[in-house]
């Protein structure tokens, strides 16, 4: 499997570390339902069969966290973006 890193180009997936579901947002720790929200955030997963937005970290490359959209049934990569978008960080 190859991941088209927006910074480094197409690289073997072995260069990246995987974290999983990128649709989750860290809840507000001050909210009254924080305990329940953090439980869902840390433990519950949609785990879809099909398109999946997921975090990959280019550990053996540019060290950028990426959000990769990938089909979990076919492994086809549908899209890649930096987790932290920033115009000034794309190489010339």
């Amino acid at each position: 499997m190859r991941i088209p890193c927006p910074y480094c180009g197409s690289r073997d997936a072995h260069e990246f570390a995987y974290l999983g579901d990128a649709t989750l947002t860290r809840p507000d720790p001050a909210a009254s339902d924080a305990a329940e929200a953090f439980h869902a955030y840390a433990y519950l997963r949609e785990n879809p069969e099909g398109a999946h937005r997921e975090y990959w970290y280019h550990a053996n490359g540019c060290r950028r966290w990426l959000v990769v959209t990938r089909n979990t049934r076919t492994h086809e990569i549908l899209g890649v973006a930096f987790a932290r978008p920033s115009t000034d960080e794309v190489p010339a």
Binding site: A59, R64, W65
Partner: peptide, 17 residues
């Protein structure tokens, strides 16, 4: 060492850009 570094990068790039 590696795990913490990766974690810090995650916090910076994803949680608190």
């Amino acid at each position: 060492a590696g795990k913490v570094f990766q974690h810090l990068e995650f916090c910076l790039q994803v949680l608190w850009p």
